[in-house]
């Protein structure tokens, strides 16, 4: 596929959420462009990822570290492991620019994470910048905004 249809982009978002829910992290890392960054702002409508704190602003090195740590033998906060679950609304396709090979989707989700007796719900909006390389859709950047980003949280251990 060199020019994805709207449907392809939407399916991609669903597939990505399923990968995260099923813990298929190695596959998930392969979805990323090498320069891709996963950003979860700390402030509502935050514009600057660099000079104020974010919850996450992670390049491929950090994401790989995150994934390897989840499977490590001495990852104490993951004994037992957390599980997660995304319920997603049909994504909006906000940008479809085949000429620039740039596609942007905006997706509302309910994210549930659980471990032992604790379970919490986050209402989130994910913005995916996508691109097509060798016929496959890839994540150029992903931004995840939490509806209650300014609330105090306990551990959020997986990837919303």
């Amino acid at each position: 596929m060199s020019f994805p249809a709207r449907e392809d982009l939407i399916d991609f978002i669903y597939d990505e959420a399923r990968m995260l829910d099923e813990g298929r992290y190695t596959e998930w890392l392969d979805l990323w462009m090498p320069e891709g960054v996963y950003w979860m702002p700390l402030d509502y409508k935050q514009t600057d990822p660099d000079l104020v704190t974010s919850l996450l602003y992670e390049d491929q090195f950090m994401l790989r570290l995150r994934v390897e740590r989840l499977n490590g033998a001495r990852t104490f906060s993951q004994k037992p492991k957390s599980r997660c679950h995304h319920v997603i609304q049909r994504p909006f396709v906000d940008v479809m620019d085949a000429g620039a090979n740039r596609y942007v989707t905006n997706t509302n989700m309910h994210y549930v994470e659980t471990r032992l007796d604790d379970q919490f719900l986050l209402a989130i909006t994910a913005t995916h910048e996508l691109t097509v390389i060798d016929g496959k859709i890839r994540i150029a950047n992903k931004r995840v905004d939490l509806l209650n980003c300014d609330a105090a949280f306990g551990n959020i251990q997986l990837l919303p």
């Binding site: 979860m40 700390l42 660099d50 000079l51 104020v52 704190t53 974010s54 919850l55 996450l56 602003y57 950090m62 570290l65 995150r66 740590r69 990852t75 104490f76 906060s77 993951q78 105090a152 949280f153 306990g154 551990n155 959020i156 251990q157």
Partner: peptide, 25 residues
Amino acid sequence: LARTAMYNRLINAPTSMVGHDDLEM
């Protein structure tokens, strides 16, 4: 400041891999 912001989110965020193990303890 960029380094400081990075330190804060890598070590002390509720989403921090380092923070997770501290809180667990």
